[in-house]
């Protein structure tokens, strides 16, 4: 049985959205189970954002003029190729050294990597507010309702309203449920998956205030995360009821 060895280069490539889908999916699965891996991915994501900000704010160190010219020429060639329909999506702005224009496409573009990192970011942080939010998501009352509530139904809990949105069967046969926990101050969309018990693997609270850093909506992120897990179509009706009954055993 093959085993993916997660080097720093692979984790970085995952954070940058550079991995092919099957490998990215494998990394995402490990990440969901291993906070240390999640943490590393978050760090790669953060280093990218911070580096971008340094360049965007023209704080970057001087670069030899020959190299700058060579790279600018190459970039222009790429842009021409991209505009001609080749290669990847258009990069909107190129001005790392002294152009004064801010790069447009953020590292958090809607890639699978970014999606997964969003989850890891939540899970990997240790502030009181985030820990408290995660604790609420994994509160026994929430987990109990995840085994019981049909999709589309609500439950009023002491700390907010729980709505189960959908149910998925993953390729490895585990069950996942998408849900939302809405309190007076916070709305959190989350995914919990069940092996021995329910475990929250993705959570996205309140859209970031700095909207320019989150080009996709939370819904898009969550959807992509589910795609990344191989969730497929949601279970409905009897199929969902049967799956839920299995969790009660």
């Amino acid at each position: 049985m093959s085993e993916l060895h997660l080097t720093d280069e692979i984790l970085m490539a995952f954070a940058d959205g550079e991995l092919d889908q099957p490998v990215a999916a494998a990394v995402a699965r490990v990440m969901a189970q291993d906070p240390a891996v999640a943490r590393k991915i978050v760090e790669f994501q953060q280093s990218r954002r911070l580096t971008r900000s340094v360049f965007a704010n023209n704080l970057a160190p001087d670069v030899p003029s020959e190299l700058r010219a060579a790279i600018s020429a190459k970039i222009e060639a790429y842009e021409a190729a991209v505009e001609g329909g080749e290669g990847k999506q258009a990069k909107e702005t190129k001005s790392i050294w002294g152009g004064g224009m801010s790069p447009v496409r953020m590292a958090l573009a809607a890639s699978l990597a970014a999606v997964a990192v969003s989850a890891a970011y939540f899970i990997g942080q240790h502030s009181q507010s985030e820990v408290g939010r995660l604790a609420q998501l994994e509160h026994p009352r929430v987990l109990q309702e995840l085994s019981r509530l049909e999709s589309g139904r609500d439950a009023e809990l002491p700390f907010g309203r729980l709505r189960v949105i959908s149910t998925y069967r993953l390729p490895d046969n585990s069950l996942c449920r998408e849900f939302r926990l809405q309190s007076t101050s916070t709305s959190t969309d989350a995914v919990a998956c069940r092996t021995d018990g329910w475990r929250v693997t993705f959570a996205l609270s309140d859209p970031a205030k700095g909207a320019e850093y989150v080009p996709s909506s939370g819904g898009d992120l969550l959807e992509s995360y589910l795609d990344n897990l191989g969730a497929g179509n949601p279970l409905e009706g009897e199929a969902e009821a049967k799956a839920l009954s299995e969790t009660a055993r």
């Binding site: 360049f55 990847k88 990069k91 790392i96």
Partner: peptide
């Protein structure tokens, strides 16, 4: 770093 993180070039 500049090319990938600053300019979004692929690897």
């Amino acid at each position: 770093l500049a090319l990938v993180c600053g300019e979004d070039l692929t690897y």
